[in-house]
Simulated assay, not measured.
Amino acid sequence: MAVEKIRLFEFARERWPLTVRVLPTNGFPSFASKPNLYDLYRAIEAACEPGGEWTAEDEWTGLANWSFHQALWSLAEQSSAERIVYRDEISFEMFDARMRANLLDDCWIAERQEYEDSPLRFH
């Protein structure tokens, strides 16, 4: 099963709020956010849980949600002052880099090859 990378990115992006307010902290993590990024991720994951048996599409959805979360988190960490992070600041390239990094684990060998072989868009 080939995946359409751009579609996967667009669907993941649509699940996130348009903006997240980021406030730097002196602790770990180095920021606080409103709403909380991890709580948002957990809610998105819960909303995407299949009603029955997991399918390959469900696996791709979960991986895409996590990759988008990581990209947003990375932007939030870079903030040295209070700011609004917009979900549209996450480019496909940022998302794709996270997807590829997540697929490096040996448990994802088949999926990694599938992702590498898949087009950006189906024609």
Rank of each mutant, 00 (worst) to 15 (best):
V85I: 10
W60V: 03
A47T: 02
S30Q: 07
P17I: 04
A97Q: 06
L40F: 00
Y38R: 05
F95D: 01
F9M: 02
F28L: 02
K34L: 13
E57K: 15
G62S: 06
N102V: 00
G51W: 06
Y41I: 02
D39M: 08
I109N: 14
F68L: 02
A71G: 10
E10K: 14
R42Q: 09
W66P: 00
E82V: 04
L63H: 06
L18G: 14
L72A: 04
A56V: 06
E14F: 13
G51L: 12
D106M: 13
R121E: 10
S30D: 00
F9I: 07
A43H: 13
L63F: 08
R7M: 15
A76D: 01
A32I: 05
Q113W: 11
W108N: 06
W66A: 10
L75D: 03
D117Q: 13
K5R: 15
Q70N: 11
W108Y: 12
D117C: 12
D105E: 14
P29V: 07
E82M: 11
F122I: 14
L103P: 01
R87C: 09
L18N: 12
H69P: 02
C48F: 10
L23H: 11
R13Y: 02
S80T: 09
A12G: 10
A64Q: 01
P35E: 03
D105P: 05
A110T: 13
Y86N: 12
D105N: 12
F92N: 00
I90P: 01
E93R: 07
Y115K: 01
R100Y: 05
T19F: 08
S80C: 11
W60N: 00
A2H: 13
G52K: 09
S91R: 10
E114F: 09
D96M: 03
L63S: 03
F68K: 01
D96T: 09
T55S: 12
F95H: 00
T55M: 07
I6Q: 09
K34H: 15
E49Y: 05
R13L: 10
A64I: 01
H123T: 14
F122Y: 12
S79N: 05
R83D: 01
W73R: 07
D105T: 10
D58Q: 02
T19P: 01
R121M: 09
E114R: 13
D58N: 08
I84W: 13
A110F: 15
D88E: 15
L104C: 15
A81C: 10
S80H: 14
M94V: 00
D106A: 14
K34V: 15
I6S: 04
L8C: 08
T19K: 03
